[in-house]
Each structure stands twice: as structure tokens, then as C-alpha cells.
Write a protein that binds this DNA or RNA. Structure first.
Length: 506
RNA sequence: GCUCCGUUCGUAUAAUGGUAGUACGCCUGAUUUUCUCUCAGGAAACAAGAGUUCGAUUCUCUUACGGAGUACCA
């Protein structure tokens, strides 16, 4: 095998890129980076009836969000193009015809109606699995069952046809999958797959092997749903006399219940995104990790561990660490369930460590941007430091810290009632005066002053602090009391102090 | 139905021919004025059976269960 590592991510632009697809792309990217190879994006758009506008752009935007931008691909350059299969249409004919000439493929003139009928007949006879294969080949209308003369006439009359692979009757087809070891299929179990459609476009199977060969792909890393058809692909490599790439079939990402592939349906059902970016069409909108407030690096780290492990106890990986640690050998065989709790935890961890300036920049591009624009960067950076250990998602900075961007909208009246004692009214007035006198308005000084007051008046912290917290933030959750005071400033503290009077009367 | 693949705490996973670690989640405690974060501790798993072996979670087989594929879709 060539030691020039070239891998490809080959999605079909039929809709938004699924998070499982992102993981496939990620593993391809990681192997390429680790081995000093090339990461290629190829758009598999041979089915023109399933083309969805915007899907290709979505795919690229998603990869770029994760910063796993392809080295080659449509719009990315590279000298193995074009990288859209629809633009390679003419390339495939040569190879199909070679297979036909060699007797490894044949013309099939069956109409879709003929096939439907054949399937129904088989079903009526109790045969659940109609297969267009060696058993039935002779009974259908194709260049195997028909004479050369008949075939020629049909072709000359422009009769619509497909080209099917002629699977040998008795041959064991086996290949070595990096993840699963040796996998083998008996050829008589395989069907004569269509490799060239009636519209002259190749099917996935043909386009896939031709392009992988022409693009000099060394490793095919794809989802397990392709394992079954790999035998067909291996056979085609044999027919063409080409060396097959190394295969690695990734375990599927399962829904949280574990009974099936994760799908867009599950996102709605379990209440989390299954797509990297939001996808909006006329009638459907799907949530995205980005819009939900996830950090791209956190999601990437989370995804990397869904079906792969470094073999060590390490969980948090920087991109560089991931590249260094990654190996096809450590890919897990069994399907992995999607666990949003773990994703949340990763995000929380990443947000705690992310530079404040980076967070601020992202926040300025999100839903609360306008509210933030009323404050200085200096102020917002301090707010971020106060909130960062208390958030999971980006928007939590503002959603959970709104009291740092204006007076509380509502108050925890229940706790106020429980903690407020009339006999302490005099002390709250005194503490207010004390605070208003301070010129050194730092958390440290304010804390010292108030604590000294409480001690010298033999009061409990529990009688005072909860009340101050509620009038300042409205809630019992939040950052250090005096750090909050320092941030919002003396004037604002004194304004909010008024709540102490209104809350008493609720 | 048929073919292929899989099966370690609830979840993600590690290791090992001599009974199992880590992380998330959960519970308890410490810290904190509170919520977090952090720290300490705890409960929790080798699908079942047979075989090989002194001994199997680890190797083999069978069963069960789960998943994928089974289109002129990818």
C-alpha cells in the first residue's frame, strides 16, 4: 500500500449533515492529520431526485464550524477533481463498459414496473426477499437472458436500460476491515446491483469505487451501514484489477433508547439537537448544536469519544492531543448511544477554560447581542468571569446572569419571606449606609466591611446575606455577593436596595 | 425471512487466562452566605448455557437479545 494517506468524507447532499456524519468526517480528518495525509470532501450527488438546495453549503459550513476544513473538495481546490459526482458523470462510462465487455456486468431492460411485479410475485409465493441475482437473472429481460442480436436491437431502439453487476455464483468474498477483522460473504447471497441507472448516472456503488480509485483514496472510513455492500465494492475492485483501499466501518451512533440509529426524529423526541447547525426550510426547522449554545471544540471532543477511545483514562483532549492519540485500532465495534448529559458536561468544562475574550466575541454574535451592546467589553469580560463556573451553554451567561445586566425582573419572594426578620430592618439600613460610604468599591473591601458589621453586631450571616442576595439578583443562585456589588457599582446597588421595602409587603 | 455486525456498571469506555479501572449521571459528605466549581467517599457491570483449562469476563461453540443491510437512495 502506498504510504500516502488520502481519506475522504463523502456525504450526500440530501439534507442537513447528521451528527453521525460529523463524527465520520472527524475520524477521517484525525487520521489524515495524524498521518500527514490529505482529507478530501466529495459530494455524492448521483441521485438527482434527492438533491436538496443548500445541503452542500450546510455540509461545508458544519465542517468549518468544527474547523475540520477539507484539504481538497468542491471549493477547496485539489488536483483530483471535480469533487461532485454529478460533474464526473462522463468519467464513469468507460469503467462500466469495461465491466460489460469483460462479462462482469450486463444490460438490464426491466422497467421499474417489471421489477415491482416480480417482487410482488415473489412475495405472494412466500419469498420475503426478492433478489435480482443469479437465480432470477435468466428470467428477466437483460443481455444475459437475451441473445446478442436481441440486445443489440433493443439498444439501437434506445430502449431504456440499467447496467447491473454480474455477481459470480460461487465465490467467497472476504476483506479485512480494520475495525471488525475479516468479514466474508458468499457471492450467491449477493444481488446483481444496479451500477448505472436509466438516466446514465452511476449508482453510489460504482461512483464510489471509481472515485476512490481515481482520487487515490487509501482508507475508506465510513459508517457501518455500508458494511453489507462492501462485498460488492470489493468485487468491483477485482473486476477492474484495482487495489482496494483499506476499509474501516464505524459503529453507528444510536438513539438514547438504544433501539436504532440516531435520527432527526429523536432530536425532537428527546429534546436535544442531532445536527451541528440549525437547518431551516419552509416547513421544517431542526435545532443545531451551534444555535443551542455548544462550543465546537467541546462537541468535537464529545464526538471523538463516541466510538473511539485512546486506551487511557484521558477524557479531555485538545485538537492536537486528539490527532496524536487517534488510531483506527482503537475504534470500538459496538454502537454507541448518544448521551446529551455527557455532551453538556464537556461543554461546561470547555466554557470554564475558554478565554473570556473568545467567549465575549461569540456572545456578541448570539441572541442576546443587543442587550450586551449596552455594556463595555471590560464590564462584560468581568461578568463572564463571574458566571463561567455557572453555565453549561453559551446563552446561559446572559440567561442565568441577567441580574448583572439590569435589575432583577423577579424576586425569590418565598426565600425572602423566610429569611427576612423585621428586627433586622435597622441593620439593613445601617449596612446600606455603610456601603454608600465606601470609596473603595471592591469585592474585598465591601466584604470585609459588611462581615465586620455582622460580627460586631452579633448577627448571623444567614440572616443578612440571603436578603442582600435576593435584592441584588432576585435569586439565591449566583456569584459571590460582593463581587456582584463591585461589578454593578455603588449606584446600582443602592437602587436595588429599594426592593427590600417592596418585598416586605408582598 | 435472509445476510452481515455486535453484546463489560443506567450511559460512554479500559484492562486482564487468576472476578473489573476511569468518566458522565445518581447518592452522601466537605467547602461556600447561596447556586456552581472543586475535593473526599458511595451504590452500580462482564447477556445465558456448554466446551477448552488447575482456573474464563477474556479462547471456541450454541442460544438469547440488539443493530445494520436487503431500491434504477446514498
Amino acid at each position: 500500500m502506498s504510504d500516502n494517506i488520502r481519506v475522504r468524507f463523502a456525504p450526500s447532499p440530501t439534507g442537513p449533515l447528521h451528527i453521525g456524519g460529523v463524527r465520520t468526517a472527524l475520524y477521517n480528518y484525525l487520521l489524515a492529520r495524524k498521518m500527514g495525509g490529505t482529507f478530501i470532501l466529495r459530494i455524492e450527488d448521483t441521485d438527482q431526485t434527492r438533491y436538496v438546495a443548500g445541503a452542500e453549503d450546510y455540509i461545508k459550513e458544519a465542517l468549518e464550524w468544527f474547523d475540520i476544513t477539507p484539504d481538497e473538495g468542491p471549493g477547496y481546490g485539489g488536483n483530483h477533481g471535480p469533487y461532485r459526482q454529478s460533474e464526473r458523470k462522463d468519467l464513469y462510462a468507460e469503467y462500466v463498459h469495461k465491466m460489460v465487455e469483460d462479462g462482469n456486468a450486463y444490460y438490464a431492460f426491466d422497467t421499474p414496473e417489471d421489477l415491482t411485479k416480480a417482487r410482488e410475485e415473489a412475495k405472494a409465493n412466500g419469498n420475503h426477499s426478492f433478489k435480482y441475482n443469479w437465480e432470477i437473472r435468466e428470467k428477466m429481460r437483460n443481455s444475459v437472458s437475451l441473445s446478442a442480436k436481441e440486445t443489440k436491437e433493443l439498444l439501437e431502439a434506445n430502449t431504456p436500460y440499467t447496467i447491473r453487476l454480474k455477481i459470480p455464483t460461487e465465490q467467497t468474498i472476504s476483506f479485512n476491515d480494520v475495525v471488525r477483522g475479516e468479514v466474508s460473504f458468499a457471492s450467491y447471497e449477493l444481488d446483481d446491483k444496479v451500477i448505472m441507472k436509466g438516466d446514465g448516472m452511476p449508482t453510489y456503488h460504482l461512483a464510489n469505487i471509481v472515485d476512490d480509485h481515481l482520487m487515490e483514496i487509501s482508507h475508506v472510513i465510513r459508517g457501518e451501514e455500508w458494511l453489507s455492500s462492501t462485498a460488492h465494492h470489493v468485487l468491483m475492485y477485482q473486476f477492474m484489477g484495482w487495489e482496494a483501499p483499506t476499509f474501516a466501518h464505524l459503529p453507528l451512533i444510536l438513539n438514547p433508547a438504544g433501539n436504532g440509529k440516531l435520527s432527526k426524529r429523536h432530536g425532537a423526541k428527546f429534546g436535544f439537537p442531532v445536527f451541528p447547525l440549525e437547518w431551516k426550510q419552509e416547513e421544517e426547522t431542526y435545532r443545531g448544536f451551534r444555535e443551542d449554545g455548544f462550543d465546537a471544540d467541546a462537541v468535537m471532543n464529545f464526538l471523538s469519544l463516541l466510538g473511539w477511545s485512546s486506551g487511557t483514562d484521558q477524557e479531555k483532549f485538545t485538537r492536537e492531543e486528539l490527532i496524536q492519540a487517534f488510531s483506527l485500532d482503537n475504534i470500538v465495534k459496538s454502537g454507541a448511544r448518544f448521551d446529551i448529559d455527557k455532551a453538556n458536561w464537556f461543554n461546561q468544562q470547555y466554557l470554564m477554560e475558554k478565554p473570556g475574550a473568545d467567549i465575549l466575541e461569540i456572545l456578541k454574535g448570539r441572541k442576546n447581542a443587543e442587550q450586551l451592546s449596552q455594556y463595555s467589553d471590560d464590564y462584560l469580560l468581568k461578568m463572564i468571569e463571574l458566571m463561567r463556573e455557572r453555565v453549561i451553554l453559551f446563552d446561559d451567561f446572559v440567561d442565568n446572569g441577567s441580574f448583572l445586566l439590569g435589575s432583577p425582573k423577579e424576586y425569590d419572594e418565598k426565600t425572602f419571606k423566610k429569611k427576612y426578620k423585621n428586627e433586622n430592618a435597622v441593620h439593613f439600613d445601617a449596612i446600606k449606609s455603610l456601603i454608600s460610604e465606601q470609596t473603595d468599591f471592591t469585592a474585598e473591601n465591601l466584604g470585609n466591611q459588611v462581615k465586620n458589621y455582622i460580627k460586631s453586631n452579633e448577627l448571623g450571616f444567614g440572616a443578612i446575606f440571603p436578603i442582600l442576595r435576593i435584592i441584588l439578583s432576585g435569586t439565591m443562585k449566583g456569584p459571590d455577593l460582593f463581587a456582584m456589588m463591585e461589578l454593578i457599582g455603588k449606584e446600582e446597588v443602592l437602587i436595588r436596595w429599594e426592593a427590600i421595602n417592596t418585598l416586605q409587603n408582598v
